[in-house]
Computed example of a mutant assay.
Amino acid sequence: MPHAILKTDKNLKDIVCVDLFVFKNRGILSLNEPFNCFLDFYKKHDSLIIKLNKVTRSIVTDELKNEILCISKNIANFLKAEIVFHNLEPTNSYMHLCDCFEKIYTQKDPLKLQKNINNLEIGFGRGEFLLSLARQRSNEFFYGIEIYGKDYLTALNRCCLQKLNNIKLINYDAKYAIDLFENNCFDNIYVNFPEPWFKFYRIQHSIFNKITFKKITDKIKQNGFLRIITDNYSFAVHSSIIANNFGLKPQNKHFIEIKNNFDTLYAKKWKRLNRVFYSLVLQKTFNSPPNFYKKYDFPINLKRLEYKNSELIFKILGIYENKNVDYKIIEVAIGSYLAQHIFFGFLEDSVFLLPQTNFLFTNDFCDTLEKVTQ
């Protein structure tokens, strides 16, 4: 994560050269267009750490790193402090926008698929596999979801340079971005080398936990396929068990088969380590019911400031204040146990959107809002 470390004995309350919102020992600073994100500030012994807030999911470019460095230098100069470390050097990471870029924003409508044959890769990394398929099968359309901004940026720039017109790339967490699509819309969903350090005791955080797997299954057309490649046998076994529970059938005799020929960045790395690749080709033989998503118009008046049951949660994680501003900024966890973390403006029990507010409407998000607004 881009950050700078300043050596100083000053505290957050001493930083008055920028409009810092503070909650306990942590502060956040708003960056507006074109970045629309927050910077985190916190003290650790005699150090002040300034880092990019990951909740607003910014794509890290040289322009953003330069902005963080300039702010850090201004604050260091104001506090008479020294920047003892930063990782904000330019790395020629620029964002070249083209038709391959799928913008994600609050209240985005479900995506309209482009062709009769539609494909999705979850976690496409730097895009080797997805872009190769898109080049080879120009009569089909491809979507890709990738959470890591650095890999996403690499894939996006490759896609734009190759001028592919049958592909869209999304930079977001697949647990939420999968809800951008209607049920029964994909012929193939690919998941290549997820969970490299898969552990059963962390199953709720897996891409194939019961909630996310159901969402993924619902997006596949009848007679479509979920295609998984992994070098982790435990993950392959877990995937076969949960697939069977959700009614997916192996295309061939066995759920798990050995895959020898596969060529991506991670596949090359694992080949050098003599890893075995396990393939699961799982067919969906039924139609899922259509999905309907609610939407809410902001601002929203909250009737309660916290809610929790066995499935849903609304919890305020922090209330950030700036004495020069009449509103506060709240950080909220909202949804299921896969809750989204979101920053809202907050004034007189009403929450409103900020330029930095970044989330997707999902059913669990909307169900939770119902509980706290009624």
Rank of each mutant, 00 (worst) to 15 (best):
209 N>P: 15
180 L>S: 10
217 T>A: 13
190 Y>P: 03
213 F>P: 10
160 C>N: 04
195 E>Y: 04
208 F>L: 15
214 K>S: 11
167 I>Q: 06
163 K>A: 10
184 N>D: 14
175 K>T: 05
152 Y>I: 00
201 Y>C: 12
195 E>S: 07
181 F>R: 09
194 P>L: 02
186 F>Y: 08
190 Y>M: 06
167 I>M: 04
157 N>W: 00
196 P>D: 09
194 P>I: 03
205 H>K: 14
205 H>M: 13
202 R>N: 14
221 K>D: 12
196 P>E: 06
203 I>P: 11
196 P>A: 07
200 F>M: 13
210 K>P: 15
185 C>E: 10
191 V>R: 01
203 I>Q: 10
153 L>W: 00
174 A>D: 06
177 A>D: 02
199 K>R: 15
184 N>K: 09
192 N>A: 06
198 F>L: 11
173 D>F: 01
153 L>D: 00
176 Y>N: 07
196 P>S: 08
181 F>C: 09
182 E>T: 09
156 L>Y: 03
159 C>L: 04
176 Y>H: 08
221 K>V: 09
207 I>A: 12
167 I>L: 06
219 K>P: 13
199 K>C: 12
167 I>A: 05
181 F>S: 07
201 Y>I: 08
166 N>M: 14
203 I>T: 06
200 F>W: 11
218 D>R: 11
171 N>A: 00
159 C>D: 04
153 L>G: 00
171 N>Q: 01
171 N>D: 00
209 N>Y: 15
220 I>R: 08
211 I>L: 15
207 I>V: 15
167 I>E: 05
199 K>W: 09
212 T>K: 13
170 I>M: 01
192 N>G: 04
202 R>H: 14
204 Q>P: 10
186 F>P: 07
186 F>N: 07
158 R>S: 05
194 P>Y: 02
